[in-house]
Every structure is written in C-alpha cells, then in structure tokens.
Computed example of a mutant assay.
Amino acid sequence: MTNGRDRLRELLDAVLEEGNTTLSAMAQDAFASPYHFTRQFSRGTGESPVALKRRVLLERAAWQLRHGSSVTEVAFAAGYDSVEGFSRAFSRAYGHPPSADDESKQHWLPAANGIHFHPPMSLWVESEPKGRHHMDPTSLLVHHDLDDTRELMKLATGLGEEQYRRGREAHLVLGWDGPDDSIATALDHLVWTKEVWLASIDGADTPPRRPDDLPTLMRRLDEVGPHWLDTIRDIDRRDGWGDTLIDALCEPPESFVVGSVIAHVLTFSAHRRQLVRHWLRSEIPDSTTEFDNGDPIMWLRERG
C-alpha cells in the first residue's frame, strides 16, 4: 500500500508533469477523478493543483529570466498563450513586470505549504517550522475562513447580477469599510480586509480598490490567500504574536498588537460569512443546493 507521503509525491508529480496542462490530465495521470484528485491534493498541500502549478511555473520563469532567458521563451515555457498574458500574471504575482526582474529579487512567491521551484528542474519543500499544531484553533480558523469564503463565492455564481448586487438591510460591520449591504460588498470586504492588513504588515502602500465581480474576487482570493497563510505561519514561527505593528496606513499612524490583528480579521470575517450565507439562502430557497452552516467541525470532517 502506498503511504501518505508517497501518494502526495505522486500527486505533485502529476501536477508538475510538463504535458499535464489541464486538471483532467493531472487527475488521469494520478489515477483519480478530477474531484478526488483536487480534494486529495488540496488536503495535502493547502493549495489547489492549478494554483500550485501556476505559482511554481512563475517561480521557474523568474529564475529563468535571471539566467538569461527571454520573456517570450519563459512565457511559452510556463504555458501561457501570449507574452501579454504571461506579463500580466507575472506582474500580479511579483509586483513588477518580467522585464524589470533582476538577481536581487527573490524568485519564491508566498506559499504556506513551503513547496517551491528549485533550479534547475525540481522542487524545494521547506521543513515544517516549529509552531502551532495544524489542529490548533487559530490554524483551523484561518484555513476555514479562506475555504468557506471560496465556497460562498462559488455558491454566489448561481445568482444573477441583480441578485448579487441587490441592496439589503445595511450592516455596519466595520465603520471604515462602509456598510455591508449586498452580497457583492460583503464578499469584497472579506478579501479587502486581508489585502489591507497584509499591506500594513508588509509596510507597503494601501492597495488599490479592485473590481468586485465574482471572477475577479476569486482571483483576488487566490492571490491574497497564500500570502495571508504564509504571513501567519511566519508570525507563529518567530513567536511574534505579541509584536507591535505600527500601521502607517492609518491617519494618524496607529499601533496594534499583531495577535489582535489576526483575531480582528477572523472575528469580522466570520460575521460577514454568516451574513452572506443568510442572504444566499434567501436568494436560492428552492434550490437543490445544500447550504452548510459554516461550522468548522463539519468543514474539518469533510476534509478528512
């Protein structure tokens, strides 16, 4: 019988095989259905197969650019149909276009699972850092928050535009965010809150507001999720929960205890997720869709 570690290696091999350009091809190579393949892989790595492959290929592209390859060469090697598409993806991931890349920059992107491209054609898997057990409540709540947000977004794709943006009883969850008065605004705030706090922690500028249509929101969640997880793991690794964050994005600047920031985000994320769940139930009352109640116990049971 194949043990868990070997099976994860098989799944990684199926994802990173050059010829496996679709989820179906990856799953077939691993002798599994796309559904079970995605479920096994995500449980083992905390990242979807497509997202991990895209990230690792971008890391490889960054390394290749720094070693003399042209943007055109690395774009097509990374599976993009055009240089323009590759440049947009690279810029979103690294914060600068591929033409501005240089040796001084890190080619690894944030990844909570520690899996990265390692030259010339292999993977580097960081050892598990000392820190919270994966069953620690903080770890569970952080992962559940991201997974539950994505599930709610998927459910919302069944709505029409009018339903998605329909004005509802306004809930002022957080004063500086403005009211949560539609499914669209509540889902946007779930992502925006993490984007803003990460900018504060990183010492970066306030991120620009971006569209809140569902395809864009899902892409934003894909971008912010790994960075959010990686940041929390780093805080835990260095036991930085009691550190003080001076938030220069506030006017005037304010100080916050780092642990309280994470608790703050989780508290109001839970509120907003339940608000969206309630509104979705009212919009899809006769659907065969089964709405869970957002319980981390049931979420963990389903993952196991």
Rank of each mutant, 00 (worst) to 15 (best):
D202C: 06
A186P: 06
G167D: 04
W192C: 05
E223Y: 02
W197S: 00
L155C: 08
G167C: 00
L172H: 11
V224C: 05
A186G: 13
D222K: 04
L221H: 04
Q163A: 14
L174M: 12
G203C: 01
R210T: 08
D181Y: 09
L152H: 05
A170G: 15
L155P: 07
D212G: 03
G175I: 09
E223T: 11
D222L: 02
E162S: 10
V173S: 11
T185V: 12
E151M: 08
D202K: 10
P207G: 07
W197K: 00
S200C: 08
D212H: 09
D188M: 07
W176P: 10
S200D: 03
L198G: 01
S200G: 12
P215V: 05
L221W: 01
E169N: 15
G175R: 13
E195G: 00
L214H: 01
T206C: 00
G203Q: 03
D177L: 13
T157Q: 13
L221D: 00
G178M: 12
D180N: 13
S200L: 00
A199G: 01
G225I: 04
W192K: 08
G203Y: 00
D213R: 08
R220G: 02
W192R: 15
H171A: 14
L214V: 06
P207N: 10
R210E: 06
L172Q: 15
L190H: 05
W176I: 15
R165T: 13
G178L: 11
I183D: 02
I183A: 06
S200R: 11
A204R: 09
G175T: 14
A199N: 01
T157H: 06
I183T: 07
W197M: 02
G175Q: 14
K194T: 05
E161P: 06
I183L: 11
L187R: 01
R220F: 08
G203P: 07
T185W: 02
T185E: 10
T185I: 07
V224A: 02
D212W: 01
D222T: 05
P208M: 04
E151V: 07
A199C: 03
L159W: 09
W176M: 15
T185M: 11
L221A: 02
P215L: 04
L155I: 15
K154N: 07
